[in-house]
Design a protein around this nucleic acid. Structure first.
Lengths: 337, 337
DNA sequence: ATGAAAGCGCTAACAG
DNA sequence: CTGTTAGCGCTTTCAT
């Protein structure tokens, strides 16, 4: 059984050279004699040498690691339906670049703001990919403004920061317009918490589509819930109890849409005849409902890849050809509308 | 604006002490004078000092990091329905222990086996949590046998390794028995790929339940698919075309169950009247189907927590009070059976 | 072409 | 109680 941790020193000793030479040889430096190079390589292979990345990192002041940070709020975090797709895209690029991926749950807003500083300063990661949080979260703001390499997965108020954004306004516009084209005139919007940029944007898209089609925006037709299925079900109940008439519902995410759809069905409202429904996100479940849920698809894996690529470019000191990238959304029409 | 990277040396210089004293002071060593201690702490706070963990790691030969590794196969990986729950549980414990979480997609079997060695030897992680892969994967075997701290999230052939397992045999037994108690006599089992331990175990539970209830096991009633919804739908079609009579179907996971349920419904078979269906995993979608899918629930978050706790204990050199932990499954009865 | 030596930031053994 | 020193594993001048 070979020693568990073979160091460069071991290699040097066995090969009869200095650690400096061994290091140069293994890194393929042309200055070192081909013969010694070969000898060193042979020893390294035989002893199963794997460089200690911690040592290397300390020296290089780089960690070859990027951190994926997202806020640990009830609505988001791991349970988010496409969290894993995002992760898949990010991971794919990182593997190609021999980078490691560190996952960080960011502390809630009430936590020490300093917790963020740590992430930035403890040198564990060279860059950060940030999942959109509540726009009120001042800790996030701090990271973003620190100048540390960051790619933000959403819209940011300032232009200087690298982002990969979804087309939320445009997607919501498409969704709403689709309903209007189906002849729906009284369209309810089921929004998420309005301190999230994503909610604001989807609401905005809804408003614009109404406006462009000569429909009056009625604040009473907007119901704010928490992105959960239960929230969707509640909204549907409140809507029915209010006696307000409506012929369509556009929800800011699929979960709420599904919750509402079930609740409506339970109350004898038939979808799409009595009320058409459109969701947002195209989660797997959307295609499995009966009727299938019409929704807006966003290529989350692609977004993950783009974000990782952008971060890699920043770390390599390359000039970004495009600081902010917007990934287009796509309308997926199914039976619910 | 303060310097981006304040080092211990900076603190020492400003506070007028040596780095050694500064280090001791900050680590709360009782030997250092209370006054100097306070002074050092004050400086550290003022300069916003955050220790460089890379330096610390190199010194301590620990990374304060654990790696969560899982194979990048089509059936599993990120897209697995409860991958995120697992992650949530693991993450929770790690945060409590100030550990970092590193995510590693393990290379496919055809990749260099050496890729694993690297994970073990580059000192990036102190321990590993391993997601069950195909039992044929010899790379996994290598990690497990290397003696590196590992917690395996499944059943392993040998007793010496720490595991947190699901009750797959027992859960499948419960599922099958439930169907039998409903008076079903011709129960089809829709299994996953049989080179996965999980498939083997669930098949085994199915067999035992039949046997204990004096029902004959018929290999023709077992259909092997790939854990996907499409697989489930295919299976249902094949079953109908075969003309084989059946009054119930137990699928090795919810996705296949749902695929099959939809396909049966499309063919005019009513669930549960004509055929009862039971799945496995209790994914979110299961509760949203109409009828709801009866299934087996496994507390994946809990499993993640247990695994992380076990690994922490191992790293602390504690004796494990229980090397292998089995987490019980639970039958969730819904409308499909 | 190679080796000696310094140093990344930190901690700990040892001296004083 | 505090400072000096050494060294974790690696890379990179600077000599030779």
């Amino acid at each position: 059984m070979s020693k568990i941790h073979v160091t460069l020193k071991d290699i040097a000793r066995v090969a009869g050279v200095s650690t400096a030479t061994a290091s140069l040889a293994l890194s393929g430096d042309p200055r070192v004699n081909v013969k010694t190079k070969r000898a060193v390589e042979e020893v390294a292979k035989r002893l199963n040498y794997v460089p200690n990345e911690i040592g290397r990192s300390l020296r290089a002041k780089k960690a070859e690691t990027i951190a994926f940070i997202f806020p640990n709020t009830p609505h988001f975090a791991f349970s988010h339906p496409y969290f894993s797709q995002l992760l898949e895209g990010i991971s794919e690029i990182l593997v190609e670049n021999s980078f490691h991926l560190m996952l960080s749950v960011s502390p809630s807003e009430t936590d020490e703001a300093a917790a963020y500083d740590k992430i930035l300063r403890n040198r564990r990661a060279d860059g950060i990919i940030l999942w959109p949080a509540s726009i009120r979260d001042r800790n996030i703001l701090k990271i973003v403004e620190s100048g540390f390499p960051v790619v933000y997965l959403g819209r940011w108020h300032h232009d200087e920061i690298a982002t990969v954004e979804r087309e939320d306004v445009g997607g919501a516009y498409m969704a709403t317009e689709h309903l209007i084209k189906q002849g729906r005139k009284r369209i309810v919007h089921l929004t998420g918490p309005l301190d999230y940029q994503v909610s604001i944007d989807r609401l905005e898209g809804y408003k614009r589509a109404l406006q462009d089609n000569q429909l009056l925006f009625d604040p009473g037709m907007v119901i704010e819930k928490d992105f959960s299925m239960e929230g969707g079900a509640e909204a549907a109940k409140e809507l029915l109890e209010s006696g307000r008439s409506f012929d369509a519902l556009f929800a800011a995410n699929d979960r709420m849409a599904i919750g509402a759809m079930k609740a409506l069905a339970d109350s004898g409202i038939s979808v799409p005849q009595d009320a058409a429904i459109v969701g947002y996100d195209n989660i797997e479940m959307a295609s499995m409902m009966s009727p299938g849920l019409t929704t807006i698809d966003q290529p989350m894996k692609e977004i993950g890849k783009l974000a990782a690529l952008k971060l890699m470019a920043m770390l390599n000191g390359e000039e970004l050809q495009e600081l902010q990238t917007k990934v287009p959304a796509q309308l997926i029409i199914r039976g619910s509308s």
